[in-house]
Amino acid sequence: MSIDIAGLPQERIVFETSPLAELNLALHALSEPEHHPGLRGWASATAASLGRDLAGRLHEADFLWRNTFSDLFMPFAGVRGGQGRAGATLAQDLDLLDRLDDEQFVSAALEFASLATYATGGPSPLTDAGARARALELAAARGPQQWEFTGRLLKDPTAVRAWVRRLVEDCDEAFFADVWQRVRGVLAADVRHKTELLRRKGLAEALRAVSPAMVLEEDAGGRRIRADKLADCQATAVDTAVGAGLTFVPSHFAWPHLMILHRPGWRPVVHYPLGTPELPAPASVEVLKLRLEALAHPVRMQLCRSTARSPHTTGELANILGLSAPEVSRHLSVLKKAGLIVTRRRGRYVLYQLDVRAVSRLSSDFLEGVLR
């Protein structure tokens, strides 16, 4: 994954905190504690403390943070005519979210329905019947609650926008205000350190401090940041339509995820983790051998990446990878036999998802690679 920064002034590269972006990762850790072994205690205690009404509403909208990290949580990147800066408070971040138009809001909220065209864009489900039908079909595969939410969003985005804002505000009251009070000092200190590193030693050194997976490349083809992720995507930090700029946002909850917002028409954002918690002990030699043999194929590596972030049907995976459904089924069977893939049925759909706990026991390097 690369970010074009040719001609970008260094002062347009900023490190800053974002309460709304941090809430996104906190909600993800609540929904997927297996992605975050070091946070299981916090996730269990926080989930147990939630009231029934709030827990139900979080379950209804958890596709915004469980399977993908919705760009709604970094609205500062999409605001037209703005400075591309995150809010200092959660309320300010929410005000920026209100400034997104309905097209931006809906396309970001339904990111799960457009993963195959995320980097290139596509017709809006608000105005295109085919895109609308596709969004509803994909939502139905993930259960009646998500299907109902998607239908409400497409019918009345204004009402759902108000519902989402109230949900975030209730999360703040229930648990996040205390969380932010605890972590914001550490995040702010990291921002100051990285900003000073950028000023004194340059971007290459600052990138090394952000993640060993990020490097600066400069050659005859231009100047770019490259991230070592299992994805083939490009972004630009010099889009005049939205305004030049690149933002780095640290997170207490993110590890092992290194996220890069690369939606067309939005400023790119690098959301990076602080710290690397301990993982469980490795599996037996016999299990290790079986699983490594299962992973010794580039297609199965890509299947692990896709199913680590979201449960998918065979047809969805075939569409994402550009393969036939029978070929994808054969690779899924190998991964399932090795105990790396789990399945569950939703109506007439069978969903496949990576068993993150099994992968974490296999290799922390592999887990970090597919979830990065």
Rank of each mutant, 00 (worst) to 15 (best):
A241V: 13
K201L: 11
V179W: 04
S310E: 06
L72E: 06
H262M: 06
T17H: 04
V359F: 02
L354I: 15
L246H: 02
E11C: 05
D93C: 11
V269L: 07
L274T: 10
P326M: 03
R305I: 14
L94R: 00
A254W: 08
N67Y: 14
L246A: 06
A209S: 14
Q92M: 03
G221P: 03
L351E: 06
K337Q: 15
S2I: 15
R348L: 07
D172Q: 14
G322M: 11
G41F: 02
P280N: 07
L332K: 02
R134V: 13
L115E: 11
A241L: 05
D53R: 12
V359C: 02
D172T: 10
T195F: 00
R263V: 14
A209V: 13
A129Y: 00
L167G: 07
T46R: 01
D355C: 05
Q104F: 02
A283R: 03
G38R: 09
T247A: 06
C171T: 15
A119D: 13
P277C: 09
R330Y: 09
I225W: 09
A91H: 00
M259E: 12
F63Y: 07
P37H: 07
R142C: 10
E111N: 06
L126N: 03
M1S: 13
A61G: 02
C171R: 10
A77K: 11
D62W: 06
P282S: 12
L25G: 03
A177S: 15
L153T: 03
T158P: 05
E316G: 08
R165V: 15
L246I: 13
